[in-house]
């Protein structure tokens, strides 16, 4: 049964996942080709200097990528369920309604997380060629809110899409926009470090809010 559930979710999101992976790899290739090029031109010491003391982030092209990927995966996974209220079919399957929603959602979240970790891993490996651990650590700290923001986007967009009433979709979207903006506020390198753990915890508990929309759907808010 779990296999069937995951099979359907994978059919929905696979195209988006491959495109996202492709985009991520292209972004990484772009980043490191540019770093290599710039280091040849301005000298490595100066390049490090611009990161350490000028706040130049060589990876800023990655900033909104997790947001876009989170949004795209959520839409790919949940939009087909909302067309013609198709989620009714899902809730009618001989499994617990919350259970199946949790499994669908967990699958999407795990795929997204795996994708993000893969990109971060490749980023770390690429950075290790050019930079010492201090710069890599600071870079990862700076990117972490963006990737957390991508996860939060996925969870909140799922909530919005599954909500049966348009007016509430709008209200949820307002809250989601306000919340997701936090992750993308401009800040100097490493400035998010004290708030990463609280943000990660909030994102983690947001993973279950899709159940709220699912419940509202099942109890006839339409």
């Amino acid at each position: 049964m779990l296999k069937s559930i995951l099979y359907k979710e994978w059919i929905k999101i696979r195209l988006v996942v491959w495109i996202a992976l492709g985009l991520g790899l292209l972004a990484l290739i772009n980043i490191f080709l540019k770093v290599r090029h710039d280091i040849l031109f301005v000298d490595a010491a100066n390049y490090w200097y611009s990161f350490l003391f000028r706040g130049y982030t060589y990876f800023s092209v990655l900033k909104f990528l997790p947001f876009v990927i989170g949004l795209a995966v959520a839409i790919a996974q949940y939009f087909p369920e909302t067309v013609n209220k198709r989620i009714k079919l899902t809730f009618h399957l001989p499994v617990s309604e919350n259970g199946i929603l949790i499994k669908m959602h967990a699958f999407g979240a795990v795929i997204l997380l795996a994708l993000f970790l893969l990109l971060l891993g490749l980023f770390t490996a690429g950075s290790a060629i050019f930079f010492p651990s201090n710069i890599i650590r600071a870079s990862l700290l700076t990117m972490m809110p963006w990737f957390l923001g991508g996860m939060a986007t996925y969870f909140l967009v799922a909530l919005i899409l599954l909500e049966p009433m348009w007016i509430f979709r709008g209200l949820y979207a307002a809250v989601a926009a306000g919340f997701v903006t936090i992750f993308f506020t401009g800040a100097s390198i490493g400035a998010f470090s004290p708030v990463l753990l609280p943000l990660a915890l909030i994102t983690l508990v947001l993973s279950c809010v899709v159940l709220f929309s699912g419940y509202r759907f099942r109890k006839g808010e339409m």
Partner: peptide
């Protein structure tokens, strides 16, 4: 209404897992 993003083989494979 059915999961129209699937083809007839995929949808059969999907449902058969539940019954």
């Amino acid at each position: 209404i059915q999961y129209s993003f699937m083809n007839i083989h995929q949808i059969e494979k999907f449902y058969s897992g539940f019954y």
